[in-house]
Amino acid sequence: MPEHDHNHEELSGNRFFWVTILNVVITIAEFIGGALSGSLSLISDAFHNLGDSVSIVFSYAANQISKRKQNARNTFGYKRAEIIAAFVNSIALVLICVFLIVEAVKRISHPEPINGTLMLIVAIIGLVANLLSAFLLNAGSKSNLNMRATYLHIMSDALSSIAIIIGGVLIDLYNWTLADPVVTMLVALYIIYESIPLVRQTFRILMQGAPDIDYEAIKRDLLEIDGVFSVHHVHAWSIDETNIIFSAHVNLHDMKISEAQPIYSEIAKLLKEKYHICHVTIQAETTRGEHEDIIYDRGNDIP
């Protein structure tokens, strides 16, 4: 493993740990603040944070599992652990937002007196802690779906804190108790909007969906390699968001294995450098299947 990647993984693990600590502190503060101020909004957000704490621990565990080496039990390694965690966390985030919308509707129907000042103080503390957590995870969220899911959880918490702050100010100044549930609903809808693409991307990877690469361009490039005259029965799938696996049948002129080996190397080099494919499996044939389509289909998933 390259040193940069190793340092990145260690850094990710350390950041997950500190984000977990911060989130637990926020949860406790909001439960206490909600009980003392009578703010259902704070208590609801405390449950939200409690769920996030569990999801962050889950993400951290997946991050550690993903570092395990390949073995006879998992020949492609354990990187899918983070994809599973990202999928579960993003689904959980959508469900939490739906719950918050339901609770907001209830608060609109049955408003209750709230201590806006205490609510405001606790929300500000929560916002500061959430922004610090978001800062810790921001870099990794750009290249790691697991950290992206956790980052979205934290950002949803930060936005919830902002909503509570706005609600607290409006309650203190104008006694407008409807402000909190209205802003909460808007924030929840935004988080759902941000989470859906993550759900779709992780689900596609888990379903062995093909990565977004140009197969016809790959075929054209392979046919330009001296000795290759047909390409068919191609499969491609992703282990995680960065590692692509590729297999194909290629038709070669009749030759010795030692003569075919340089062609294999040239194919692997082309696919790695131009299409960023990390693992290539080639099955060499002479005339078998030479007229078949590049994507093999006989009406079943895996012939």
Rank of each mutant, 00 (worst) to 15 (best):
V234S: 13
L223D: 08
M255S: 01
V228T: 05
S265I: 05
I267G: 03
A236D: 11
T202W: 09
D226K: 14
P262C: 07
M207N: 06
H253M: 02
T202F: 09
Q201W: 06
E259W: 01
W237Q: 14
E259Q: 11
F229L: 02
F229G: 00
S238Y: 10
H232A: 12
G227C: 08
L270A: 08
Y215V: 15
Q208S: 11
A268D: 11
F246W: 10
F203D: 04
K219G: 09
H249T: 13
W237N: 13
D212I: 05
T202R: 04
H235P: 13
I244H: 12
I225N: 03
G209C: 13
A248P: 12
T202D: 07
H232S: 12
T242Y: 07
P262V: 02
N243M: 11
D221L: 07
R220V: 01
I218Y: 07
H233E: 15
H235W: 15
K269I: 05
W237T: 15
A217L: 08
Y264A: 01
A236K: 13
P262I: 03
T202S: 11
I225K: 03
V228H: 01
A268L: 03
H235N: 15
H233Y: 12
T202C: 07
E266A: 10
K256D: 01
I257R: 00
S265C: 02
I257L: 03
F229E: 05
E216L: 05
K269E: 11
S258A: 09
A210W: 08
I218V: 13
Y215C: 12
I225E: 03
G227P: 05
I218C: 08
V234M: 15
F203A: 14
F203Q: 07
Y264C: 01
D226C: 04
Q208H: 09
S247G: 15
D221Y: 06
I239D: 08
F246E: 04
V231N: 07
A217E: 06
R200V: 13
L270R: 14
H253C: 02
Y215F: 15
A268I: 02
D212N: 14
A217S: 05
G209W: 10
I257P: 00
V228A: 02
S258D: 04
L223M: 10
N251E: 07
Q201I: 09
S230N: 11
I239W: 07
H232Y: 14
S265T: 08
K269L: 08
E216R: 04
M207G: 05
R204F: 14
E241G: 14
E224V: 03
N243G: 05
E266C: 07
N243F: 07
I205D: 09
D254K: 01
G209D: 10
D212A: 10
D254Y: 00
S230C: 07
I267N: 03
R220D: 10
D214L: 01
V234H: 11
F203V: 03
S258Q: 04
I225Q: 01
L223C: 06
Y215A: 13
L270M: 15
Q208R: 09
D254H: 02
E216K: 06
K256W: 00
K256L: 02
A248I: 15
Q201S: 13
V228L: 08
I267Y: 08
Q201C: 06
R204Y: 13
D254N: 04
I239C: 07
